[in-house]
Write a protein that binds this DNA or RNA. Structure first.
Lengths: 132, 132
DNA sequence: CGATAACCCGGAGCACGCTCCAGGTCCAGC
DNA sequence: GCTGGACCTGGAGCGTGCTCCGGGTTATCG
């Protein structure tokens, strides 16, 4: 066990591009990845788990800077679990707010759509000759 | 009637910054705004209505480029209503998809939160002396 | 009439989050 | 052994969407 994954496999699994993976490592979002003899990266299962976490956070709009805070805490060990939990809960609230905002804005867009539809219904087929 | 609004009022009402208003005008998202004698802008009620539309679109994540397409159609007159409707419907579908994505990702974040909570529950109060 | 605030313009700058590039190294298959 | 593809590095570049700056003009208020 303790399988490892090539960069290409990791791209495939994580959904991050190769460049993004290296970028994340460079800025400390990922701990330095183990290397094979020749210097090529070998991502561990733990790395993939962490990448999955990052995907969740990015996918819900967490800024890089905040993910960095989270990464620092994660690296400090088990006694930061409470802090991390707090950070996630705060983020969850932010996501909730964003969802609410989106829903509200969507309803406005839909109102505009209805408005256009009504316009078209009331002013039908401009090009159709009337009454022959 | 046919009230007009100063830039400051328009900022207040539209929620866009002064710079953003001028930027939008520059890139053609807004038609050239009428000016008072001295060259200061006077936004019309129509302008405000259009700004409200832009806010809906931006607020639901429509890229500037697409809003520009929309603006061009709007400027071409009433016989583009169908095209505009199609554009809005397409956008509405995109918003829908984005909402679905967000909801799914949120559930993953919440799963992580639960995981942390479980960890804390199982490993309670590290600092409390055990059994005196 | 003077001061202060609001506004004008063109253009530069910025924050974010990647993405691409050049010039090399490593490794798997024939 | 050689070739082609995957991978390495540091650093530059880019797309988006504003935001800020400097220097000047116009409006408002006491």
């Amino acid at each position: 066990m303790t399988e490892t994954f090539s960069p290409a496999q990791t791209v495939e699994i994580s959904g991050f591009s190769l460049d993004t993976l290296r970028y994340y490592e460079k800025i400390g979002l990922i701990e330095p990845v183990r290397r094979a003899a020749g210097g090529h990266r070998r991502y561990s299962e733990d790395d993939l788990g962490w990448l999955d976490m990052l995907r969740c956070l990015r996918g819900t709009g967490m800024p890089i800077a905040q993910m960095q805070n989270f990464a620092v805490l994660a690296r400090e060990g088990d006694d930061t679990v409470e802090d991390r939990l707090a950070l996630l809960e705060e983020h969850d609230a932010a996501v909730e707010a964003e969802l609410a905002r989106l829903l509200e804005q969507r309803s406005k867009v839909r109102a505009k759509i209805e408005y256009y539809r009504a316009y078209l219904a009331q002013q039908p087929a401009v090009c159709v000759p009337q009454g022959d």
